[in-house]
């Protein structure tokens, strides 16, 4: 079976036919010029997104708080960005990545900051395991796209990465995810 065909089979398992278009969890437009409002609206969603990206909640909380501190320090600048939440996500992810590197410890997801190891390490199976097998750059694109609900252009701006790079990473990530998740479809059919 061709990979793309296989990919088409996987999601049909659990997705309701009436699935509504996703709403961004953190808006790509400025939520407010007021830092307090921004913090209240964006903080938890970004923590969840970073957790999904690095696999360690407590470190994600620390990282997002650190990023929020930096956002507050530079709020006059950050608030004018098209997507302040994207800035916070990127700073938090970079901070967490830096901490993990400095610790010289295995990544919670079992991969490294640079590239994934090829063995699944998370206890929870299915989609999280598949996500964990991506390297962090591809994981970040997937999280921005699907968890935070940003468009490719918004994801590119948030990650300070060219749109073309986002598209190619998303494409590769989706191919890998679809192949890793194929067993769900097989189980369903059997």
């Amino acid at each position: 079976m061709e990979p793309d065909r296989q990919a088409l089979r996987v999601p049909a398992v659990n997705v309701p036919a009436t699935a509504a278009p996703p709403e961004p969890l953190v808006g790509a437009s400025p939520l407010s010029h007021d830092f307090e409002t921004f913090y209240a609206n964006a903080r938890d969603a970004v923590v969840r997104a970073v957790t999904m990206t690095i696999g360690e909640r407590d470190l994600s909380v620390e990282a997002v708080d650190e990023a929020m501190v930096r956002a507050y320090q530079r709020w006059s600048h950050v608030s004018r960005l098209e997507n302040p939440g994207g800035w916070v996500y990127r700073v938090a992810l970079n901070w967490a990545t830096s901490v993990l590197r400095r610790r010289h410890r295995p990544w919670p997801f079992g991969g490294s900051a640079e590239r994934s190891e090829e063995q699944p390490s998370m206890a929870e199976p299915d989609v999280l395991r598949a996500l964990a097998e991506l390297d962090v750059r591809h994981r970040a694109v997937v999280v921005c796209r699907y968890v935070l609900g940003w468009s490719e252009a918004e994801t590119a701006a948030a990650l300070a990465t060219p749109v073309g790079t986002v598209k190619s990473r998303l494409h590769r990530a989706n191919r890998q995810l679809s192949s890793r998740l194929a067993h769900l479809q097989d189980e369903k059919e059997s």
Partner: peptide
Amino acid sequence: MPDLDRYLYTQLRSKAAGVDVPSGDI
């Protein structure tokens, strides 16, 4: 791959929603 898109939206958001986030202190 719209079906994969929907699947990932649904599944990953569901997983993300399950992350217990401690209260922040602004």
